[in-house]
Design a protein around this nucleic acid. Sequence first.
DNA 1: AAAGCGTGGGT
DNA 2: TACCCAAGCTT
Length: 359
Amino acid sequence: MKEQQIQQFNHDLLDWFHRKGRRLPWRKTDNPYYIWISEVMLQQTQVNTVIPYYNQFIKKFPTPEALADAPEQEVLKSWEGLGYYSRARNLQKGVREMVATYNSELPKNKSDLLSLTGIGPYTASALMSMAYHEPEPAIDGNLMRVLSRIFLIDDDIAKQKTRKKFEKLASDLIVQTEPASFNQALMDLGAMVCRPKIADCSQCPISSHCRAYEEGVQLEYPVKSGKAKPRMLHYAVLLLLDEQGRFLVEQRPDSGLLAGMWQFPMLSLDEYEDEQQQQAYSRERFQCSVEPPEAAFSYTHHFSHLIWKLTLRIGRTPSQMKLRKRQCWATMNELKRFPFPVSHQKVIRWIEKNRPLHT
DNA sequence: AAAGCGTGGGT
DNA sequence: TACCCAAGCTT
């Protein structure tokens, strides 16, 4: 675009944004720490889902020191249900780095921001523009979708290096006067008007600048390579009670899927295929009998990259049993203090509904 | 570079 | 129903 066109583009975009842009909790603050929290929560997560988590989180951890000093379990508990839990762990790690290295203040330059755990290229640019009003384009999925349509860019946005191309492009586009509004405007436009499957071009303030609209090919953009089909895994979820009606729960490993979250013990039914092996294993590991297996209910839980087929089985285990590391007995009330992934919250809900006395 | 990493909502 | 998708980062 020529300079004249760029100015017109920005005028049309920002005028729309000031009239129709969303009013969101994290847009009311100038506290870089709060903006950081919002940006992390918003990664791969929709605005409406984030709002209650954001409000609750800044209330519970109002300062960087409060978050830095909190036990990780409490942070995960506040993140419970939001997904991608490594975000919470990385956020706390990053905040601890900030407290230790930068005197509790968020750095004001991009390379220092990038050095903090959990801050990648998008978040660093978002913070530069939204917290410090520097003209840094924050290239996320919305920006790439909108700009790919405006300029008919057919690079695969699933590839890392494509982001750099959009970064260069948007650097020449972004207004110096209110860079935060530029980024937020394109995000709002992407979320509300220029959507993936529905491009409501009649409501678009910049359709006159849009080459995809001109050619009627909005929905062919952006180009994005497909994802692999999720793998399926089968587990028995073991609801093991001691004589006092307490439940055996355990904390997952510190890395990998649902790291640091709690769960009821799970028995892989893919590794122990025949019934004999499963029984032998569960007896050895839990000193309990789940035979004849009392299957309470079965359900399916979908992750982004795999599917769990789960069957709840109920058994009895002596409370004197030697527990492994990261395992403990917990009453229903105690158990609720631990962060559980949704896949296991379903079990808790089932217990409360069907076994109110926990017997 | 590509895969791993959650969940809820929309079509 | 069964997809697809969302303000990405880490390894």
